[in-house]
């Protein structure tokens, strides 16, 4: 590509972001050039600062820039329930819902032998340590509903086994507010399997 070297460098750096291809990166680079210098500095500083300050919460591995994350710190949260998610995105999604009042545990991935990931590559030992603290009565498994997520959930439920802690898995079924006729066949089948008595 014919362009100033510093511009090419910027585009190459932007392409390292998820979902950004060559065209988007080019558009972003041009946009950055049109922004005033303070805004650009602010953007760069925000990236560096975030990387510097944010680290995993030592208890649940959610992201935080303090000693504990905002969930673990909150005294109003129910400490008897832990919701296990694959990544910090899961925490954000469930927090958007706003109705869950328990704690989280971020695994940092899933079990996937294809990618060389086994039980030691996710934060399971840390989870089991937390469960020893006697206060936990329920573990909610909120890993993704795909092959790897299901395997990870099943594995955790086996590990916890008969420790007396209740293990639950998020339900699958129809989306709220949607029409039955628009649901895909597999979702319908799962919803049928998971039907409840009224």
């Amino acid at each position: 590509m014919k362009a100033p070297e510093s511009m090419v460098k910027l585009i190459e750096q932007l392409r390292k972001l998820p979902g950004v291809g060559p065209k988007t990166a080019g558009r972003m680079a041009l946009h950055i050039l049109q922004m005033d210098p303070e805004t650009v500095a602010g953007l760069a500083e925000a990236m560096v600062k975030a990387k510097e300050l944010i680290h995993p919460c030592p208890v649940c591995f959610n992201y935080t820039d303090e000693d504990l994350c905002w969930v673990c710190k909150d005294d109003n949260r129910d400490r008897s329930t832990i919701c296990v998610v694959e990544g910090a995105e899961g925490v954000l999604a469930l927090e958007r819902m706003g109705e869950y009042k328990g704690l989280y545990h971020v695994l940092g991935g899933n079990i996937s032998p294809m990618n060389g990931k086994g039980p030691d590559d996710v934060r399971l030992r840390e989870l089991l340590e937390r469960l020893k603290e006697n206060r936990v009565s329920e573990v909610i498994l909120a890993t993704d509903p795909d092959v790897e997520g299901e395997a990870t959930a099943l594995y955790i439920s086996r590990l916890i086994g008969d420790s007396g802690i209740k293990v639950t898995r998020l339900a699958r079924g129809l989306p709220v507010g949607g029409d039955l006729e628009y649901a895909d066949e597999v979702t319908l089948m799962r919803a049928m399997e998971g039907r409840r008595k009224l």
Binding site: S112, P113, M114, P119, E150, A151, Y155
Partner: peptide, 26 residues
């Protein structure tokens, strides 16, 4: 595919018998 990968590295993977159970159930 996941089970084949597990079987290939069966002796290196920690707790592989339990993982094999899980993929077999799947």
């Amino acid at each position: 595919l996941q089970k084949n990968a597990l079987l290939k590295n069966y002796h290196e993977m920690p707790d592989s018998p339990r993982l094999l159970d899980i993929f077999n159930e799947g």
